[in-house]
């Protein structure tokens, strides 16, 4: 199996606070990794460190065989941020324009969007069944539709890795199921490696093949099937949560 992301002895400090403390793990091609942990455990920080959004203190991150510091192939990573959009409600972006932003990682100056780029955007919209929204204004869409548009933006450059930060917070249960099923399909059919931060531990059990549980330090990393069964002396997984993660065996 090919290493997609390999993290070794990673430390990240934000100011004086130690946020990530000696993390090491390797994610392989085609993995569907559920990233979980308590509030403030450093899940978003870990993802941002992988994406190069925050500096790492010591340790190393290797993405697709290239050291993080010299990594430049950002088109190979699709990212769906935590907030539905950091943009304000006045921003007049159409769906096509938002999705096109996902393509500019492949461009060099001057970045021009060609006819074939537009085709890629339209194909992606069709694939996610939101083609009819292409000229709509992003801010006028429902939460579920916005999430799909952002997923299209993450997918349009045909990434090898997709990273989601709390993708389901804005979704109602129905769109949530639909969203996870879609992600699973991408994982199965196109072997896209998925890393997903979610509080919906139930979904990790149902869809992920690996669990990465951190609380500043690494608590557990391994196959969902090897995950320790419920036990009463486990400090992290109270009976309920453990049971939910084991939902796959219901």
């Amino acid at each position: 199996m090919t290493d997609i992301i390999s993290v070794s002895n990673l430390f990240v400090n934000l100011g004086q606070t130690k946020v990530l403390d000696d993390l090491s793990f390797v994610i392989n091609k085609g993995d569907f990794v559920g990233l979980a942990g308590p509030n403030g455990a450093g899940k978003t920080t870990l993802v941002k460190a992988i994406l190069g959004l925050i500096p790492i203190s010591t340790g190393s991150i290797t993405i697709l065989g290239t050291d993080h510091a010299s990594f430049s192939d950002w088109g190979s990573i699709g990212y769906l941020p935590q907030k539905i959009s950091n943009a304000n409600q006045l921003f007049p972006a159409s769906v096509i324009e938002v999705v096109t932003l996902g393509l500019i990682s492949q461009k060099s100056w001057p970045k021009r969007i060609t006819y074939s780029d537009l085709n890629k955007v339209e194909e992606t919209l069709k694939r996610l069944d939101i083609y009819k929204l292409k000229n709509a204004m992003f801010t006028e869409l429902s939460g579920g539709q916005q999430q799909k548009v952002l997923l299209a933006r993450a997918l349009v450059a045909k990434p090898q890795i997709l990273i989601f930060d709390e993708p389901s917070t804005a979704l109602d249960p129905e769109s949530r199921n639909e969203f996870f099923a879609l992600v699973k399909k991408l994982n199965n059919e196109e072997k896209i490696t998925i890393i997903i931060i979610t509080h919906d531990t139930g979904y990790i059990g149902r869809y992920a093949n690996k669990l990465l549980y951190i609380d500043k330090k690494l608590v557990y990393f391994g196959g969902i099937n090897d995950f320790c069964p419920p036990s009463k002396d486990n400090q992290y997984f109270e009976k309920n949560e453990n049971h939910i993660i084991w939902h796959q065996h219901e």
């Binding site: 190069g52 430049s72 088109g75 990212y79 950091n86 972006a93 500019i104 990682s105 100056w109 970045k111």
Partner: peptide
């Protein structure tokens, strides 16, 4: 403005996301 249109647009729309696409 024209030659940096997409960079300006992306960085204005969502600065953090823009960084993840190499802007």
């Amino acid at each position: 403005i024209i030659t940096f249109y997409w960079d300006l647009f992306s960085a204005t729309y969502d600065e953090e996301y823009a960084k993840t696409t190499g802007v």
